[in-house]
Simulated assay, not measured.
Amino acid sequence: MKKFWTFLITMGSLFLVPYLMYSIDGQSWELYGGPAGLALMYVMIGGPIILLFGIPVSLLSDYVTRGKPLRWLWAMLIHTFGGVLFSLVLFHSLYFVIIGGIVAFVFWSTDEGFKWYERSK
């Protein structure tokens, strides 16, 4: 259930990615129906990718890093590397590689936030 909430929060953060990416490369929003259209496109493309690839990578990361020193650091590297690698293989574009890395980092930070909250109870 925690991974589902992590997925939903990450999907919500995808709406912010177009604003960040526009500030980096100045891409024209008019081509995509404005910022809301571009955000909707990211969510429609990113949602299935996160469900089919992001959650399994996160589960693998949890399994591999269980009980390791600096677990959070290794988990972050696995999440981010997975997002970057998958984006590179699927899209062959630096633009989407950056987005994949950002989304993977957001997914990891949300997942770690839930873990920190559970440990602090």
Rank of each mutant, 00 (worst) to 15 (best):
P35S: 09
R119D: 15
A36H: 03
I49W: 13
L31E: 12
R119T: 13
L16G: 00
I45G: 05
V64M: 05
G33Q: 12
T6M: 06
Y22T: 06
Y19A: 11
D62V: 01
V17T: 10
S87T: 14
V106P: 02
K121P: 00
I102N: 08
F15P: 00
L52H: 05
V64H: 03
Q27H: 13
F114W: 14
P48G: 08
K115F: 02
K115H: 12
P56L: 00
I24Q: 06
V57I: 15
V17Y: 02
S93L: 12
Y117I: 10
I49H: 11
D111N: 10
E30P: 00
V84Q: 03
G83C: 10
W74M: 02
R66L: 11
K2F: 04
V57H: 05
I45L: 14
I98F: 15
F7S: 05
I98Q: 07
G100E: 12
P35Y: 10
Y42F: 15
S23T: 08
V43E: 04
G83N: 11
L88K: 07
L70N: 11
I99L: 02
G12C: 07
M1D: 13
M11G: 02
R71Q: 13
G12S: 01
G100N: 11
F105I: 12
S13H: 01
V89S: 08
Y42M: 12
V43Y: 14
L90Y: 14
R119W: 10
L52T: 12
L59F: 02
S87G: 08
W5V: 05
H79W: 12
V17K: 02
S58P: 01
S28Q: 07
P18K: 13
G47W: 09
S23Y: 13
L51I: 14
E118N: 11
L85G: 04
V106A: 08
T10E: 01
L51Y: 08
M21W: 10
V103F: 05
I49C: 14
W29Q: 08
G100T: 05
G67V: 04
G34I: 07
Y22R: 14
M44A: 15
I50S: 07
R66Q: 11
M21N: 07
W108P: 00
G34L: 09
I24F: 15
M76E: 00
P35D: 02
A39N: 07
V97H: 03
G26F: 14
G83R: 13
L85V: 14
R66Y: 12
F81M: 11
P18N: 09
M44S: 13
P18D: 08
M1C: 04
G100F: 09
T10H: 03
T110C: 06
A39P: 09
S13T: 04
A104Q: 11
S61Q: 05
I45R: 10
I99W: 05
F15Y: 09
F81W: 10
I49K: 10
L59Q: 04
V57N: 00
Y63L: 02
W29Y: 15
G34A: 07
I50L: 15
R71F: 00
G33I: 04
L94P: 05
G83L: 10
I55M: 07
K115Y: 08
I55T: 05
G82V: 08
F91D: 06
K3P: 00
V89F: 15
R66H: 14
G67A: 04
S28D: 13
T110P: 03
Y32F: 14
L38F: 14
V97S: 15
R66K: 15
